[in-house]
C-alpha cells in the first residue's frame, strides 16, 4: 500500500474530496439530519407549520400494529431475497463456469437481462403474468391462484419478481469472482478429488467468501430499501400483507402527510441499517481476512 509522503499539512487532499463532500453533505447528510429533526415534530400537510412532540411519534410507532406487520414483512422480504439471490447466484455461477454446460451464453443472457429491464416494465409484465384468469403463471400451473390479490401470496409474488430481477447482477459478480480463482488452486484440488461437487465445497466456496461478503452486503442494503415493485404492483395490499417498511413510510409520510411520523420511522430504519452494517463489517473483517 502506497501512501503519498506529503508535507505535514496540505490543502491538496481536501481539494480532491471537496466536490464529494459537498454533494454528499447536501444530498445525504443534511437530509438525514433533517429527517431526524422532523421525527420529533408533528407537521401540517405541507410541513410549513410544525410542533414539537418529543418522542410522541416513536411511541405511536410502537403501538402501531401495521408498523410491526410491515417490519415483519420487510424482514421476510429482505432475507428471502438475499438467501435466494446468493444461493441461486452461486448455483448459476457454478453452472455457467462449468465445462459440462453447452448453453452457456443463452443461460447467461437469460439470467442477466432482467437486471437491465426498467422496473416499471418488469412490474407491468409480471402483473399480467400473475393475472388469475389469463396470466401465464396460472395457466402453466393449471391452478387458479390469486397472486396479487390474496393475503397469502402477494408477498411471495413480489419476492419472486424481485429475485428474478436482481439475480443476474449477483450472479455476474459471483461468476467474476469464480473466474478470478487462480488455475493453480484448481489443479491442486484436482489432484485431491475427482468429484466436482466436493471440489466446489472445498475450494470454490471458501475462496469466494470475499466476493460473497460484498454481494451479500449490497443485496441486503438494497433489498431493504426497495419499494418500486410494491408501489407499482400491490401498493402494499391487500391490507398491508405485501407492504414493506420503505413503502409504508412513503404511505404514512407522503400520502397521508404525517411527515413527522414518517421521519420517525425513517430514523429508526436508518439506525437499524447502520447497526447492521457495522456489525456485519466488523464480523466479516475477522472471518474473511485470510487472503492478504
Amino acid at each position: 500500500m502506497s501512501r503519498g509522503s506529503l508535507a505535514k499539512w496540505s490543502v491538496k487532499p481536501y481539494l480532491y474530496i471537496l466536490p464529494m463532500v459537498v454533494i454528499f453533505g447536501v444530498f445525504s447528510v443534511y437530509p438525514m439530519l433533517r429527517t431526524v429533526f422532523l421525527s420529533f415534530m408533528e407537521t401540517n400537510a405541507i410541513a410549513t407549520q410544525m410542533q414539537f412532540v418529543g418522542l410522541g411519534n416513536y411511541s405511536d410507532m410502537t403501538s402501531d400494529r401495521h408498523f410491526w406487520r410491515v417490519v415483519g414483512n420487510t424482514a421476510i422480504y429482505g432475507f428471502s431475497q438475499v438467501i435466494l439471490t446468493l444461493g441461486l447466484g452461486l448455483l448459476f455461477a457454478a453452472v455457467a463456469n462449468s465445462n459440462m454446460v453447452k448453453f452457456r451464453t443463452l443461460f447467461r443472457l437469460s439470467a442477466f437481462y432482467p437486471y437491465v429491464l426498467p422496473i416499471a416494465v418488469a412490474a407491468m409484465v409480471w402483473i399480467y403474468l400473475y393475472n388469475p384468469s389469463r396470466g401465464a403463471i396460472n395457466l402453466l400451473l393449471d391452478h387458479r391462484i390469486q397472486w396479487l390479490n390474496s393475503y397469502e401470496y402477494a408477498l411471495i409474488a413480489l419476492i419472486i419478481v424481485s429475485v428474478w430481477k436482481s439475480l443476474g447482477f449477483s450472479f455476474l459478480l459471483i461468476l467474476a469472482g469464480m473466474q478470478n480463482i487462480s488455475k493453480e488452486y484448481y489443479e491442486a484440488a484436482a489432484l485431491e478429488t475427482n468429484n466436482h461437487v466436493k471440489r466446489y465445497f472445498m475450494l470454490t466456496l471458501p475462496m469466494l467468501m470475499p466476493t460473497l461478503f460484498v454481494v451479500c452486503l449490497l443485496c441486503v442494503t438494497s433489498s431493504f430499501q426497495s419499494m418500486d415493485l410494491v408501489a407499482i404492483m400491490t401498493q402494499g395490499g391487500p391490507g398491508h400483507s405485501s407492504n414493506v417498511l420503505m413503502y409504508y413510510i412513503y404511505q404514512e409520510g407522503i400520502i397521508n402527510r404525517r411527515l413527522g411520523y414518517g421521519s420517525a420511522m425513517s430514523t429508526i430504519f436508518l439506525l437499524v441499517l447502520v447497526a447492521f452494517t457495522i456489525v456485519y463489517l466488523k464480523f466479516g473483517e475477522r472471518r474473511v481476512e485470510y487472503e492478504r
Partner: peptide, 10 residues
C-alpha cells in the same frame, strides 16, 4: 378499507 380487506380476503 382495511376492515373490508380483512373480511373479504382474509
Amino acid at each position: 378499507k382495511l376492515a373490508l380487506d380483512e373480511s373479504y380476503l382474509n
